[in-house]
Simulated scan of single mutants.
Amino acid sequence: MGTEDRIVVGISIGDINGIGSEIILKTFEDSRMLEFCTPVIFASVKLMSFFKKHFETDINFHGIDRIEDLIPKKINVLNVWKEHVNVSFGEENEKGGEYAIKSLKAAVAALKESKIDALVTAPINKSNIQTEGFNFPGHTDFLAQELQGDSLMLLISESLRVGLLTDHVAVKDVVKNITRERIDNKINTIHQSLIEDFAIEKPKIAVLGINPHTGDNGVIGDEDDTLLRPALDNIRKNGKMVFGPYAADSFFGSGNYKNFDAIIASYHDQGLIPFKTLAFGKGVNFTAGLNRIRTSPDHGTAFDLAGKNQANFDSFREAVFSAISIYRTRQEYKEISKNPMQISRKRSYSKKK
């Protein structure tokens, strides 16, 4: 829908009782953001006007009832609903989840129809979103159902990218969810994303072991030797620069992560604890591998800060910039792929984002 300099970024409001509204408003209170994109907030003018008054932000909205009526370089608010909604800052309740999902579903529908170019999602609460019509542990799983491709949670910052073999899976179920097929799929997904979305011509990928010390030759589990190593050996035979498995406990502290374009962790906390330690507040959650672009901040609803005008919006702003950057890089890759002999490759393969 957008052009190179006028990318339309859809924004889902997240849990209305969390900090989503505040970080959205603070991001776009800076009018310079409109030089990079045209935002469309999926909520209602009534609700956003309430938030504007509460947080005393100097911001103007353009209310629309159809996405086709958006005005470029304005902060558009699409009325997904018209009714008044009570906000209870800091409270986890059904209303917070209900309107978060209304916003998300409308935004994803627009994304699927290419009425927006990219989607940035404000945080939701994984508990209060659960209903008969929405039974997903988070954004990533819902998007995997709605969009095409093989999804992969990829945390990105200026100097670090961490993907996951398994994401929102209980620790007791991690090993049984790591299969040869999953290893192949996830590495292929992150490899292609690094090429298409980050302009890295020959990605170098590190893989962290499943067990402590990668099993110590079977003393602490044999999955690294019987499953992970053979899978990586086979992938290397196909020409991909994949290294490991590495012992996770020393990999980040030693600075070894700096030698790779991306790291794949075996499970959620193995990857997210070091990522958030190194990049919290500046990191972005990107759903790689899908045919549409979605990013989000690297934090949750922060109910303890909600409504207090104290939330840090840096990560949300970075999520907007990342969505724009990935969209442009992906469009450029598509053009190069269509006309490889006609287009001069101007891309810098040293890009970090």
Rank of each mutant, 00 (worst) to 15 (best):
S114V: 05
S296C: 09
T329G: 04
F275T: 09
T226R: 12
T329K: 14
S127Y: 07
D173S: 15
Q270R: 10
Q130W: 00
K172E: 15
I264H: 04
Y257L: 04
M33L: 08
L78P: 07
N135H: 10
Y246V: 13
L194W: 01
T166L: 02
G244Q: 10
V8Q: 06
G221W: 09
G221Q: 10
I13D: 08
I264V: 15
N238D: 13
A43N: 09
K351E: 15
N312Y: 00
K112P: 15
G255A: 10
D249V: 14
V207C: 12
N211H: 05
T295P: 11
D167M: 06
F50D: 00
S193E: 11
H62Q: 10
K351C: 13
G90I: 06
M48G: 02
G281H: 03
E68K: 14
S325D: 04
S337R: 13
G255W: 03
F134N: 07
T131F: 02
K95N: 15
N17W: 10
A109D: 15
I336F: 14
I16L: 14
E83D: 15
D225A: 13
T140M: 01
F243G: 01
R294E: 10
S44R: 02
N217P: 05
I7Y: 02
S325T: 08
F251R: 10
P203A: 08
H54K: 04
L194A: 06
N312I: 09
P123Q: 12
H299R: 03
I263S: 03
F280N: 11
F142T: 04
F252S: 01
L305W: 03
K202C: 12
I187L: 13
I263N: 03
G283M: 01
K338M: 12
F61I: 01
K351Q: 15
L165W: 04
G283N: 05
R161S: 08
S44F: 00
K282Q: 12
T295Q: 05
A262F: 10
D150M: 12
L232F: 12
N238I: 08
G90E: 05
D69Q: 10
N60G: 00
Y349S: 12
N312A: 12
L70C: 07
N93Y: 09
N93W: 08
N60P: 00
G281L: 03
V80P: 05
K308T: 08
T131R: 13
K308S: 01
G244R: 04
V85H: 07
R6C: 08
S266W: 00
L278K: 06
L111I: 07
V242N: 09
K353T: 14
N312G: 07
M241G: 01
L154F: 01
M33Y: 02
L208R: 05
D216V: 02
